[in-house]
């Protein structure tokens, strides 16, 4: 059966993970993704041990399934002309080069519009071109260091030593944003015939993502506390029981009543510090401490 995006053609100049993961999501849905690679190929081809074929490393295989490869040296004028002929047959053009680098190749939005006026043109940048970091290059760790997660990891651990989570959080999250932004512009184009320029900046995307719950009291005033206390509680963790580790997450009134009934301490919820959802949310570290202490002597079952 054909995918939902059958017939949509995307010219993809991205490499590494962010862009390729975004276009993988579109290719899985049936879009024709033409991956344009420089003669040296996407660097991710050479990361990790390949199965049999050199240049076909594990992560490359994952995010580039369902794609076609067009290998051109775009510094060559004839190769650039050939690419523009392919672009003229496409619905979207996506890249993840810095704004000045893509302009340098003569493949900026205005260049592409000349050959395909209704193109959906998407640039994934490290930082918004108009922002204070606009000209800086970016890799996942450089974004993680800036958008706040490294700091929160240290606060959650309790030692205030910044650290990175063991996943390319920014690349993959921005890859998702990249995919749905492209799709939104394609839907608008289908309804109206209009193409447009789309910028998806990593840093700004990740800041907006992190602040969903961590903007916290800064929502109301500039000197408010940043950081959702429940997620930063050192007592929030898998809990040790007599026969192994266990995830325990009482959340609403009913959950907490059940929990304290099971452990034989129903009177705890009569304490005004713990009696309502809001009171518990203000004292969440206490709540998790009690879970920790009360479950150590119990079996999981």
């Amino acid at each position: 059966m054909p995918g939902a995006l059958e017939g949509i053609k995307i010219i993809d100049l991205t490499n590494v993970i962010l862009g390729p993961y975004g276009t993988m999501l579109l290719a899985d849905q049936g879009a024709e993704v033409i991956k344009v690679e420089a003669p040296e190929g996407d660097a991710v081809r050479h990361i990790g041990k390949p199965g049999k074929t050199p240049g076909m490393g594990p992560t490359y295989l994952y995010v580039n399934r369902n794609k076609r490869s067009l290998c051109l040296d775009l510094k060559n004028a004839a190769a650039r002309t050939a690419l523009l002929k392919v672009v003229a047959t496409a619905d979207a053009f996506v890249h993840a080069l810095r704004p000045q680098a893509i302009e340098g190749l003569g493949l900026g939005y205005e260049d592409i519009r000349k050959v395909k006026p209704d193109i959906v043109y998407v640039g994934a940048y490290g930082f918004s071109a108009d922002g204070p970091y606009g000209k800086l290059p970016a890799y996942d760790d450089a974004i993680q260091a800036r958008f706040g997660i490294a700091d929160l990891m240290g606060r959650a651990a309790g030692d205030d030593v910044p650290r990175y989570p063991p996943t390319i959080l920014a690349d993959k999250t921005v890859g998702l944003t990249f995919a749905f932004s492209t799709l939104s512009a394609l839907m608008h184009r289908q309804r109206t015939g209009e193409g447009q320029f789309v910028e998806v900046p990593m840093f700004e995307t990740m800041a907006a993502w992190l602040m969903v719950e961590h903007l916290w009291e800064r929502t109301f005033s500039d000197d408010g506390e940043v950081g959702y206390s429940r997620l930063l509680a050192r007592t929030r963790k898998p809990f040790r029981t007599l026969d192994g580790w266990m995830a325990i997450l009482p959340y609403n009134d009913k959950h907490w009543r059940s929990f304290f009934d099971i452990v034989g301490r129903p009177e705890v919820l009569k304490d005004p510090r713990y009696s309502t959802l809001n009171a518990r949310s203000m004292n969440i570290s206490d709540m998790y401490s009690m879970v920790d202490i009360l479950t150590r002597a119990k079996a999981r079952s």
Partner: peptide, 8 residues
């Protein structure tokens, strides 16, 4: 995933 330039 394609070899480099498989569909050029």
């Amino acid at each position: 995933a394609p070899l480099l330039g498989a569909d050029s």
